[in-house]
Nucleic acid binder design. Structure first.
Lengths: 187, 187
DNA sequence: ACCTGAACACCGTTCAAGT
DNA sequence: ACCTGAACACCGTTCAAGT
């Protein structure tokens, strides 16, 4: 609130005349973002629809990282983004799931998406400025002892390239493969 | 830091003589928590091993919710918890995955686990006290218009019971079913 | 070596007051 | 109706000083 009011050359308290709370402000911005989300043309195949909706949802989180912790508090999604939930559940049903299964699978997808979004560092913006203040940075698990952690040791070298090859889509397709009835779609 | 020092009847600055940073302190506590984690006896079947390790990982997050955002910053896991990663990747390989596939599937599981942990509200502790300060609470998607959101409308009534029936294990098994080669285990 | 006090630059929010 | 200033109760951290 203080920072925002500063960018507007105003006082913190001016904001409180338009908004009860920081929470109310966040909700309003959330809905604003939700309204601006592009609504892509979806393919006919329900499995492909799910993937496309989920990827735009994921992209929305990457573009607006602050949203994820706010949504995690469980308040609201911004009504203008509800079509995504509807679309995912509907397409899951079209893939042959029952209503309950569809709901649960949506839940799984949601957790996966939010989890990855939380762990994806926000865009390096211009004002990152490479800080160079050393702070305390813990030694990562760069070289695990091969004796105790043989598999990690084997992976250690290629960790970066492996991580870069991982994609949101990969995990999503695994979830779908595991949740959808076999043969629901050509694949 | 200030709050902690207050509970110790000390000054904020006393802490800084033992620790460079808030980050260093967090890392130390993180490692302390990691060391106290119970290490369950694991079954022989690799798929069951994965499930058991993941569930204790998930339980650890539920018990220590503050850990999740800290880990999300990507610094460190606490060396004493690395055995979990090793165990999961090893068991995935034992299920028939290649090293890369195992790494990626572990990644998927991790995102799913973190995502669900973030969304699970912390234990209602005694000091929650039901606040009763109304604040701003957004109207949830309780009754979606059946015209625009037919599936959500159908689910709306049972949302609570459906959510309560959902379990961490369900999503996890879906991921495993989708990621593991077919017939890798009896199922 | 270990701790303290004062200070700096932040937060969200309340309350009484100004136009 | 809209904005302000002073105040309260918070943050993490630095810096000079005390024992």
């Amino acid at each position: 609130m203080r920072r925002l009011s500063r960018t507007m050359d105003s006082t913190p308290m001016a904001l409180y005349h338009h908004v009860r709370d920081k929470d109310e402000l966040l909700t309003l911005v959330l809905e604003h973002v939700a309204q601006d989300l592009p609504r892509p043309e979806l393919p006919d195949d329900p499995r492909e629809r799910i993937i496309m909706v989920c990827e735009s949802m994921y992209q929305a989180f990457i573009d607006n990282p602050w949203v994820v912790p706010v949504l995690a508090r469980g308040e609201l999604v911004g009504p203008s983004a509800v079509w995504m939930t509807e679309e995912i559940i509907g397409s899951l049903i079209a893939c042959g799931l029952g209503h309950e299964q569809a709901f649960w699978t949506h839940q799984t997808i949601w957790y996966y998406t939010a989890g990855q979004a939380v762990h994806t560092p926000p865009h390096k913006t211009a004002d990152s400025e490479d800080d160079s203040a050393p702070h305390y940075s813990a030694a990562a698990v760069t070289d695990p002892s091969p004796a105790r952690f043989p598999h990690l040791a084997k992976l250690a070298g290629d960790a970066r390239s492996l991580e870069s090859q991982y994609s949101y889509r990969l995990g999503l397709t695994h979830i779908l493969d595991g949740a959808l009835p076999p043969g629901s779609t050509v694949r």
